[in-house]
Design a protein around this nucleic acid. Sequence first.
DNA 1: ACTCAATACTGAGTCCAGTCAGTTACGGCC
DNA 2: GGCCGTAACTGACTGGACTCAGTATTGAGT
Lengths: 199, 199
Amino acid sequence: MPVTSPPLGRRERNKQEKLGRIKAAAAELFAEHGVEDVTTQQIADKADIGTGTLFLYAKSKGELLLLVQNAHYAEALQRGRADAGAIEDPLDAVMAIVRPIVECNRTQIDNGRFYLREMVFGDPTEPHHNEALTIVAQTEEAIAAILGRNTMAAADAATKARIVSAIMFVAMAASVNAGLDVNTIVQEIRTQITLLIPR
Amino acid sequence: MPVTSPPLGRRERNKQEKLGRIKAAAAELFAEHGVEDVTTQQIADKADIGTGTLFLYAKSKGELLLLVQNAHYAEALQRGRADAGAIEDPLDAVMAIVRPIVECNRTQIDNGRFYLREMVFGDPTEPHHNEALTIVAQTEEAIAAILGRNTMAAADAATKARIVSAIMFVAMAASVNAGLDVNTIVQEIRTQITLLIPR
DNA sequence: ACTCAATACTGAGTCCAGTCAGTTACGGCC
DNA sequence: GGCCGTAACTGACTGGACTCAGTATTGAGT
């Protein structure tokens, strides 16, 4: 008994099935070769659809990456929130949110950086872009909630969460850091956040 | 009496002159229409050189923008440093560094955002990219110097300067802020920095 | 002045993301 | 079942960044 009413015609079913094939094809190819080394043509072929059809489901290659990866980030946030709940110390709790996201981002460095690029510079009116921004907003809220557990004013907590977000972005995106592994990046982020959240 | 020895042959002179034409052509076209609405072909035509020649002087369109704009940012930093020197309060002094850079960045919003994108995601082995990173490093040093005027440890000052840098980047680059004017952005940055530099 | 290796230049050509005019499939209605 | 408006699909095509094999220029050596 799905919440959505059952009158799904062949048309809607076809669309859903096609979307599924596109997601699967893109996910596999991106994971295997990296976004930059996959052409939209290859994705269309693998999903067994026409070139133009692909762009009915995602307006650009960047949107396609967001479509494929958003779920991973949402999951990472979920895990982080769960872990953070059990941690007293605010700094450690915030880092519990940060780490899974960095791990997710670094699963494949080029894809991770491309994802961030798309998020900041892509078209915010596109649905998958919007979903990505929502995840960021939720991440900031989770961090703000941790900071708010003390006596900190809610507005200040939100602003600090924003700063953490910026620190994370730059640490993960910068070309200079492209060669660093997860732990090194997490450490760099921690060093910065430490100055923001004195014990 | 230039420092570089005078034995400049015709070859070197031609190259310098060509580079000058390219810079001028790109600067004018970018300022008039915005990077995205100018083709490399137009630039080559205006500079009166072949299509391929352009890419001997800048490996990509992004590098071309850095080539043209780096000097503006260096100047903005210069101005900011001069202003900041006369200001006692650390927060105000830091903001004196920040403001001219934001102004420079917002002279033309799309170009400004493209510049930032190139800086973070472009090829750091390219010369103009490298110059841009140097300007950022100098900006961070200037900010660290201000923060170090108090009793703050040098390492902490440098780290906080880094954070300011990240805050600035995100504030200027985010699609969400694309519609905001200079003052609003400067204000947003100030709000965040205030939490980092308590009076 | 001549030769020639090295350097600089060139534009036709490649590659690829994204478009759009034309076609096909669906499903509501008789 | 047959008709038709609409939504979905398609792939040849476009535009633009960038390449590279071929050509021209330079200047050092003789």
